[in-house]
Amino acid sequence: MGTPRSSRQSLVMSARANLAAALSRWLGNGLLLAITSVAAIGVLFILFFIARDAVPFFQLRGFKEFFTSTHWYPSQEPVEFGALSIFVGSGLVTLGAALVAAPLGVAAALCLSDVLPFGVRQAVKPVIEMLAAIPSVAYGFFALVVFAPWLQRLGAITGTNALNVSIILGIMALPTVVSVSEDALQAVGRELREGSYALGATRAETLLRTIVPAASSGILAAVLLGIMRALGETMVVWMASGNAAQIPDPWFNFLEPVRTLTATIAGDMGEADHVTGSARYHVLFAMGLCLLLFCFACNLISEWVVSIQRRKLKGE
């Protein structure tokens, strides 16, 4: 009998072996860190490459026209790249989606975290997961082929309008809003709830006066993430928003067709692709950059807000 040679060797402590071990540990750590950084480098690369192709547009056409004019004629001479109506379109459907998703989502999250018994909650979870899992193109298909004719039968002049898209985007954003705000509500903890009940408050009073204020920043983060999802969504708006580059009259008229940033990028790239280097091509990257920066901002704000809540709950 005898121990295997290799394991006996590893017990020997020599300076060289120590160095080798330290070196390999250091290398291994570095390698892991390098691989992990791929995601981080990915974000920077995305920002860089979108910006690289967006800058030529602003060099060619400046800022003023893009952000203040509503004349969007990228393909007929003289070309005009006024994207204001497209920004308004994106804003309008995102606002609509938030109006659908925020109240519904927060109410559902409150109900899930504090009202429903455990068994029912377990049954509702898959519903939320399924809503989150359905591919966006299937939502878009539904919006265009099923939902738009319904709206038209109800009296809208066209079924592919801002209302249609807002409702569908709202439904798509629901899972995010529900799950993130439920997490925030759960994070508040038992003590506050028990304290409030002990003072004789009803469930509604406990939730609305104590729990929601304590979780407010988390709920805000949830709504922000939902808004981000709606703003960045492409297929639904491309298929069902009507794609008319115009500001509705009045601006909150949800029954008019609109056009969004994402849909413009998706729809115009096919024509612009072979004229790489033209303003036509770069304007789409400029839109992408605007989207990207907005989403970065939303994301950072929501992270910041969540960390504030975490600190506050820990501190109290």
Binding site: T36, A39, V43, F45, E303
Partner: peptide, 28 residues
Amino acid sequence: LLRTCVSTLAGVPSIVFGLFGLAFFINT
């Protein structure tokens, strides 16, 4: 910082990924 990057990556709109794929993987 790395964690923030990962969550930021999760928040990038899908169409921007498409633009990036075109600009980086294909054109660059």
